[in-house]
């Protein structure tokens, strides 16, 4: 700052001030310690889910608590897994979608939030097409807000379940070579994963054409590498995370889909370049034949279905955290 005394109010620069306790807006402002606690709780829920006897017990953790799922954008896995996560814990859920609510009549986000809070929701899980929407909502509510994806910004629970999945295959995130391939620019999943992995000392390499992976991406965290050539990047990858090419966001970009497939599709041939124990991940939705072939998606190294399953215990941990439950 060129000026000594005037400074923007603290509230403006620290996004967690003025936000209800227990909210999860992004990975960027979480500490590694906070994330580790979420993993520990997720792991505990995970094993209890596996045992039918403790399943009964689980339903008492959030018995009768009210969870609102506010979805301004289409979603399959995030919505279903949040809903099952809440129900596994005994919570009552309601789903609000843009098409079937007053949102369609022009109600503002803040007003919709006030309405949901006034009806008794104790936590709001929101998916929204605008970056920063979860932050805006959280600044106006007194109940915690969980970001289930905001525009191109972040998708924190996806990154949590991705890292959780990596940890079930690999000993530690420290030093792990994670390769993220595809449309980084439009991807909230990539942003959250990069933030999380760099907090734990993983070595992140991004791969894609400049239209989808601008050089600016390396500014997200220290030590991020950018690779334009997939074959070269695969050689050292411990984890390969494929991203969907977001056709709906490509307007105005000079991107030839055929070239993209030729250069960046994950095929069995290319997989032979990667270490044998490399794990393949994809946050979904996956477009077979575009960024990945069916053989690879369904192959032995794929953890794609497991990722979806892990989303449930991870989101159980996030929901209990939001509602102030320790275990």
């Amino acid at each position: 700052m060129p000026i000594s005394s005037p400074k923007p109010a603290a509230r403006k620069s620290n996004p967690s001030i003025g936000v209800p306790f227990g909210s999860l807006l992004d990975i960027e402002h979480l500490t590694a310690k906070e994330i580790s606690v979420i993993f520990e709780n997720a792991s505990r829920f995970h094993s209890r889910l596996a045992k039918n006897s403790s399943r009964q017990q689980l339903t008492k953790v959030l018995a009768g608590r009210r969870v609102a799922l506010l979805f301004y954008e289409a979603s399959t896995r995030t919505r279903v897994s949040f809903e099952f996560a809440a129900k596994n814990l005994g919570a009552v859920t309601t789903v609000v979608t843009a098409a079937a609510s007053s949102i369609e009549k022009g109600e503002s986000l803040v007003d919709t939030g006030y309405t949901i809070q006034a009806t008794g929701a104790e936590v709001v899980v929101m998916r929204h097409p605008s970056s920063g929407a979860a932050q805006l909502l959280a600044q106006h509510l007194h109940v915690p807000v969980i970001n289930a994806g905001d525009g191109m910004h972040e998708h924190p629970t996806q990154a949590l379940l991705d890292a959780y999945t990596m940890l079930r295959h690999k000993k530690s995130l420290r030093g792990l070579n994670v390769l993220i391939v595809g449309d980084i620019f439009h991807s909230r999943v990539a942003r959250s994963n990069i933030q999380l992995l760099s907090k734990f000392g993983a070595h992140v390499t991004l791969c894609g054409p400049p239209e989808l992976l601008p050089a600016l991406a390396s500014s997200l965290a220290p030590g991020i590498e950018i690779q334009r050539n997939l074959e070269n990047a695969l050689v050292t990858a411990d984890v390969i995370m494929m991203l969907r090419v977001q056709k709906e966001r490509l307007e105005g970009l000079n991107l030839n889909i055929a070239d993209y497939v030729a250069n960046y599709q994950l095929t069995p041939d290319r997989m032979r370049l990667a270490p044998r124990d490399a794990v393949i991940m994809h946050p979904g939705p996956m477009i077979r034949g575009m960024e990945i072939t069916a053989e690879v998606a369904d192959g032995p190294q794929s953890a794609i279905v497991e990722q979806v399953a892990n989303g449930v215990p991870v989101r159980m941990a996030v929901l209990t955290r939001a509602l102030g439950i320790k275990k």
């Binding site: 970056s131 601008p214 500014s219 997200l220």
Partner: peptide, 11 residues
């Protein structure tokens, strides 16, 4: 503005 902040915020 186009820069590290816009990239980080997804704008």
């Amino acid at each position: 503005n186009l820069g590290p902040t816009s990239f980080r915020l997804g704008l």
